[in-house]
Structures are given as structure tokens and as C-alpha cells.
């Protein structure tokens, strides 16, 4: 299990594309959108950075699913899935080993982007314990869904397309690009079915309203349940994934 995790982390760190999607592009977006919206006199500077920095952090956290899809599909195509299945490693250990590095990457991503917000835009952080728990829950759901997607999709392109729909569609409807209060009632109701909404509302609760763990327990619960559902779906789909593997 740790061997798989170590190898995956080593490979992932070498992937320049991942660095771009995970750190460079989100920072470019944050800088650009804070510059555009901080001129709006009807909204306070704190509200702007509290909407944009967590919003884009959540949106780009979902893009880890692309890297996960690429890794799993490649493993399937070159027979690595079947090769590992021939070793004494259990399915659970295999998934844990594959999942852990991506969880770490998303947590580092959240830390870097929030850190950037603090240093450059004076972003307030609120209760650190609540912030860490919510960030763990966010990393858990995106990597859980990433695993499910990676195991289910037939091709890399299909996985990338579906991630775009989930990440960008979820960002639009979940209020990451603009506060849900500005959206029609129907869209506001749809938002509540999306993890992006619960993650952003959780961050706002902590940062803007000074909330603690007691104030975001529902947000945490929803994100964790959604993440577990992704993990279970990945496990259930594994036999089919293994059958499709070359050997």
C-alpha cells in the first residue's frame, strides 16, 4: 500500500501538467478575478476575496479528477492494474495507495492557494480547526469522486470531458463564480445538490461569519458522505475495471 502511494507521489511530482493545473492556473484566475471585481463599490473587499479565493480553490480542486483519470486509465491500458492484482496486495490497499497521494496534493493545493490569499489579499482564515476539517472534507470528496470517475470511464477523453462538466458545471451552479443569492430560485435549489455549494458555504461560514465546527457540521457531513459514495462506487466498479485491464 505504501509502496503504491510512494511510487504514485514520485510520478505525480514529476508531472509538470499537474503543477500547472493545480497551482499556476488557479493563481492566475484568482489574481485576474480579484482585480476585476474589487473595483465594484457595492461589494466589500473582504466579500470579494472570500468569494473568489475559496471559490476558485474549490473549482480547481475538482480538476485533480483529470490527473486521477489519466493515471488509472494508463494503468489499465498498460496492464499495471492486472499486474498489481497478481500480487498479494488487496483491492482496498491498492485504492488507498492510489488515493493518498492525490489527497495530499489537493491539501497542498488548498494550503498554497489560501496561503497566497492571506499573503497577497489579506484573506482572513477564521477558526483554523474548522478550516482544516472543511479542507480535508473537500479533498476527500474530490479524490473520492476522482477515483470513481477514473474506474468507471472507458477512455481518458471521456474522463476529462466528464470532469470538465462536473468542475465547470458545478462551479457555475454551485455559486463558485458568483454568489448563489444572485441566481434564480430554481438554480439556487439545484445548487444545494452540489458539493461545490456546500464547500463554499462552509468556507464563507468560517471566514465571513466567524463560524466553528458546530456551524459547519452539515457541510462536512454532506461532503464526507459524497466522498464515501465515490469511494464505494470505485470499489464496486473495480472488477469490471480489472477485466478491462490488459495483461
Amino acid at each position: 500500500m505504501w509502496a503504491i502511494a510512494r511510487t504514485e507521489l514520485k510520478k505525480t511530482v514529476q508531472d509538470k501538467g499537474l503543477w500547472f493545473w493545480t497551482f499556476v492556473l488557479p493563481i492566475v484566475f484568482i489574481v485576474a478575478f480579484v482585480a476585476i471585481f474589487s473595483g465594484d463599490e457595492s461589494t466589500s473587499y473582504k466579500e470579494v476575496v472570500t468569494q473568489i479565493i475559496p471559490g476558485y480553490t474549490i473549482m480547481f480542486a475538482f480538476f485533480i479528477m483529470i490527473s486521477m483519470v489519466i493515471v488509472f486509465v494508463k494503468d489499465r491500458e498498460r496492464g499495471m492494474v492486472a499486474r498489481i492484482a497478481s500480487t498479494p496486495l488487496s483491492i482496498h490497499q491498492y485504492f488507498f495507495g492510489k488515493w493518498l497521494p492525490f489527497m495530499i496534493i489537493v491539501l497542498v493545493q488548498i494550503t498554497v492557494l489560501f496561503g497566497f490569499g492571506v499573503v497577497v489579499y489579506d484573506l482572513p482564515l477564521g477558526d483554523p480547526f474548522a478550516l482544516i476539517l472543511l479542507s480535508l472534507a473537500l479533498a476527500f470528496i474530490v479524490t473520492g469522486w476522482g477515483m470513481a470517475m477514473a474506474v468507471i470511464v472507458r477512455t481518458e477523453n471521456m474522463g476529462i470531458a466528464m470532469t470538465q462538466i462536473l468542475a465547470l458545471g458545478g462551479a457555475l451552479l454551485g455559486g463558485l463564480w458568483m454568489p448563489v443569492e444572485f441566481m434564480p430560485d430554481v438554480v439556487q435549489n439545484i445548487s444545494k445538490a452540489l458539493p461545490q455549494y456546500w464547500a463554499l458555504q462552509g468556507y464563507k461560514e468560517i471566514i465571513l461569519s466567524g463560524g466553528g465546527v458546530a456551524d459547519i457540521w452539515l457541510h462536512l457531513l454532506i461532503l464526507i458522505i459524497a466522498g464515501v459514495a465515490g469511494g464505494v462506487l470505485a470499489l464496486v466498479s473495480y472488477p469490471r475495471f480489472l477485466r478491462q485491464s490488459r495483461s
Binding site: I4, R78, I84, T87
Partner: peptide, 28 residues
């Protein structure tokens, strides 16, 4: 069992040593 598949199941971007360590670890 030592299974040698038809496909070359190696991590291309890593060294021969890294690959041997990976499979050695998988067998304990």
C-alpha cells in the same frame, strides 16, 4: 507466484531501481 505479463508493466518515468523497489515492497 511471479507473474510476468505480456504487457510491459513498468513505471516508465521512474528508474529501474524504483520499479524493483515497488514490486519488492508489494511482495513484502
Amino acid at each position: 507466484i511471479g507473474y510476468i505479463p505480456q504487457e510491459i508493466c513498468l513505471e516508465d518515468t521512474l528508474t529501474a531501481r524504483d520499479n524493483l523497489i515497488l514490486f519488492g515492497n508489494l511482495y513484502g
